Computed example of a mutant assay.
Amino acid sequence: MSSSVPSTSLWDVHRLPRADDRLFLVTGGNAGIGYFIAEQLSATGATVVLGSRRQEKAKAAQAAIRDRVPGARVRTLRLDLADLSSLRKAADALGSAHLDAVVHNAGIALDDPPRRETRDGHEVMFGTNHLGHFALTGWLMPLLSAAPAARVVTMGSFAAKSERLDLGDLQSRQDYRPKRTYGRSKLAQMYFGLELDRRLRATGSTVKSVVAHPGGALDSLTPSRPPVQVRSFGTWLRGAPAGVLLQGKHAGAWPAVRAVLDPTVHGGQLWGPRVFSLRGRPRLDPVWPHLADTAVAAELWGVSRDLTGIDPCSIPE
Rank of each mutant, 00 (worst) to 15 (best):
V303H: 14
T294Y: 10
P282E: 00
A297P: 04
V296S: 01
D293H: 01
P289C: 05
R283A: 13
P273I: 05
V296G: 04
W271R: 02
R283M: 12
V287G: 06
W301F: 08
P273C: 05
R274G: 10
S277F: 13
A292F: 08
R283H: 10
G280K: 06
L300S: 00
R281C: 07
A292N: 08
P289I: 04
V275H: 15
G280Y: 03
S277G: 15
L300C: 00
L278T: 07
D293V: 01
G302V: 06
P289W: 04
G280H: 04
L278E: 11
W271S: 01
G280S: 03
R274Q: 15
Q269D: 07
A298D: 07
D285Q: 14
G272E: 01
D293G: 02
P273G: 08
L291E: 05
D293W: 06
W301L: 11
L270T: 08
L278D: 04
A297V: 02
S277C: 13
G302S: 13
R274K: 15
A298E: 09
P289K: 03
W301M: 11
P289D: 03
D285A: 12
Q269I: 02
P273E: 03
T294E: 13
T294G: 14
W301P: 04
G272W: 01
L278P: 00
L291G: 06
E299F: 08
W288Q: 12
D293L: 05
A295L: 14
G302Q: 13
W288T: 06
L284A: 09
H290A: 09
R283C: 11
V303T: 14
P282L: 02
F276I: 12
W301R: 09
V275A: 13
L284V: 10
R274H: 14
A295V: 13
L291M: 07
A292Y: 07
V296W: 06
D293Q: 03
R283F: 08
R279P: 00
H290R: 10
G302I: 07
P282K: 04
D293R: 02
S277L: 12
L300T: 00
V303R: 15
D285R: 10
E299D: 11
P286N: 11
L278V: 07
Q269P: 06
G302P: 03
V303S: 12
E299A: 08
L270N: 09
A292S: 14
D285I: 08
P282I: 00
A292L: 10
L300Y: 00
D285E: 15
V287Q: 07
A295I: 12
V287P: 06
L278H: 10
R281S: 12
L284E: 09
F276S: 15
L291I: 03
L284D: 05
